[in-house]
């Protein structure tokens, strides 16, 4: 295995990276196995040069989303329990993730006690967690002040930030503010000029071979405008990113998994840890979908993202919360 400076590769975070490399049973001359979410995959034969690259870009993390702590309706009377089950699932993963990302709607009503509960449960994973807000986290009367005071330290503008881990550049975008009133397709989320200008500068000096992960709460492509499932100015953000060889966009909000590929950019919406929502257009409104209690866990999940080589797209594995 190539020599590395663990601290440097981790961008200064206090994660023990050695645990991540357990998935690489045989790097250097043979097959790299990614054991991700319990599903082993062969990622191909690699030579020593490629192995060095793999070591550079090797990192596994887990995305959780839409915990909605405080929700209390029949679709899931106890989202704290299901969030706990998601964390238990993560703890049981054979390849431990380096860190977690939570793509918003941590709380249902932007209340401190709901965030307290969420933080307490998520802490059980014993990992660093990178958060972004959902619209439910900025729904206090002061429009997000409470979230930003709690989770927004060291962020820019209204909570956006970026960081680097193991050669992967992560960009946390905020598209839950500044909704403009409008009928149908006009009622989409926005990133806003201030954030877009920041984004342009943030990626300007970077090599096109840098793998990019974008975190956002609302989808970064227009999935279903009638329900506001899209971001009006996402195209401008993506125009700054399309020169990169691998861009992975992870979001929440719609409580179901939908994927799309556009050139080098792959988009992945995530399952919720709380309750499902209907498929686009399949119901009169996008509210919580109540399924038989025995089936709920099939609709909830966590997502593992595993980078093995810095120049190729990561392997994503979605796992349900079915025991």
């Amino acid at each position: 295995m190539a020599d590395r400076d663990d601290t440097r590769l981790l961008g200064g975070t206090n994660i023990n990276r050695r645990g991540l490399l357990k998935c690489m049973t045989w790097a250097g001359t043979g097959v790299v196995w990614s054991l991700s979410g319990g599903v082993p995959r062969t990622l191909g034969l690699i030579g020593s040069a490629a192995a060095a690259q793999a070591a550079q870009g090797d990192v596994t993390f887990v995305q959780i989303s839409d915990s909605h702590i405080g929700f209390h309706l029949p679709a899931n009377p106890n989202p704290t329990t299901t969030l706990g089950e998601a964390i238990a699932k993560i703890k049981a993963m054979p390849t431990q993730p380096a860190f977690l990302v939570h793509t918003g709607d941590i709380s249902h009503l932007s209340k401190e006690e709901q965030w307290d509960t969420a933080d307490q449960v998520v802490k059980g994973a014993n990992k660093q967690v990178f958060f972004i807000p959902g619209e439910h986290d900025v729904a206090d009367a002061s429009n997000g002040k409470a979230y930003l005071a709690r989770y927004g330290k060291n962020t820019q503008g209204r909570g956006w930030y970026s960081f680097d881990i193991a050669g992967v550049h992560f960009i946390a975008l905020i598209n839950v503010f500044n909704f403009q009133p409008g009928f149908k397709s006009a009622g989409l989320a926005t990133l806003g000029d201030h954030q877009l200008e920041w984004l342009e500068k943030d990626v300007a000096g970077r090599s096109a071979s840098t793998p990019i992960v974008v975190l956002a709460h609302l989808p970064m492509w227009t999935i279903y405008p009638q329900w506001g499932w899209g971001t009006e100015d996402a195209g401008r953000a993506l125009s700054y990113l399309k020169r990169f060889g691998s861009v992975t966009v992870l979001n929440g909000h719609i409580h179901q998994i939908i994927q799309k590929v556009e050139g080098n950019v792959t988009f992945h919406t995530a399952a919720s840890t709380a309750y499902p929502q209907p498929a686009p257009g399949s119901a009169p409104a996008p509210g919580p979908m109540t399924v038989p209690a025995a089936d709920l866990h099939k609709y909830l999940g966590v997502r593992t993202v595993n980078y093995v080589a810095s120049k190729s797209a990561p392997v994503l594995t979605d796992s349900t919360l079915v025991a």
């Binding site: 909704f179 403009q180 009133p181 009622g187």
Partner: peptide, 12 residues
């Protein structure tokens, strides 16, 4: 007075 739902802006 025009108003909307600032979470679901297509609600007006």
């Amino acid at each position: 007075y025009h108003y909307f739902c600032s979470i679901h802006p297509y609600m007006v």
